[in-house]
Design a protein around this nucleic acid. Structure first.
Lengths: 130, 130
DNA sequence: ATGCGTGCAAACGATTTGCAGCCGG
DNA sequence: CCGGCTGCAAATCGTTTGCACGCAT
């Protein structure tokens, strides 16, 4: 059902190589630099497809921009993302999971879900910034 | 410093009366219905001002739209929102704050910020659902 | 009187979509 | 060969901004 085109392959490969959160626009630029340019619209469409297929993690930045990255694990987890370069660390926090569950329960809420993402500046980017 | 205009008053009053999360556009429509119409740009600007002044809580939906609601407390906190009726409880969690800071730091990240929202079904809605 | 606040429309940035031609299966 | 995929440009959508005028202080 999913046709394998050169642009889809290029995008998947690019994400595979970094494993960091990147925006559609960044990926578009990176592809162009690599000489494997693809239309911006195609990048967007491909990212959506892959995300729907569960092959990519997606999240929205504070500024409202969507970021995608190659999944490393399917289980529930959160992310610590560098707001400058997109470098990502997957973290699981039994502590917060419990906290969320406990707090929700204490207010009589059930079927509790949570959205938790951490943003920061990684050591490398902090150093470069001067 | 903040000048009190009729549109600012109308917006504040509207938010005060619902205490629910609303988008700028929703507020704009509600104001028009009330016959207290204000320019859409003004609504946006006012919401930003109020949010910066710490008088409004702001969050971004999954779809990327900003929502605002009247604060009940000024300090940093998170929300527990009933996904059925929208009822919101403000929660603070020194535990998670620390956790976020600690986890971020342990990976060498600095200037750590976090996005944490809890969604659940409140006791009342859970009871009604049967 | 001053100059912030407002309204309107144009500008914006991210994302989507219409459509004709391309190409993978 | 056929229909999904692509590229491009135009279209959306939410939000922001430039500018001239109005009104709160």
């Amino acid at each position: 059902m999913q046709r394998m085109t050169k642009q889809r392959a290029a995008i998947a490969e690019l994400l595979e190589s970094t494993h960091d959160f990147k925006s559609a626009q960044q990926l578009h630029d990176l592809l162009r630099e690599r000489g494997e340019a693809a239309g911006l619209a195609t990048v967007y469409r491909t990212l959506q497809n892959l995300a729907e297929a569960g092959e990519l993690d997606a999240l929205r930045t504070e500024e409202g921009e969507m970021l995608y990255r190659m999944c490393e694990r399917a289980e529930h987890h959160h992310h610590l993302v560098c707001r400058s370069c997109g470098k990502t660390v997957e973290i699981d926090g039994p502590t917060v999971e419990d906290w969320a569950q406990r707090v929700g329960g204490s207010f009589g809420f059930s079927e509790i879900e949570h959205t938790i993402e951490l943003f920061g500046t990684c050591a490398q980017c902090a150093g470069m910034r001067v």
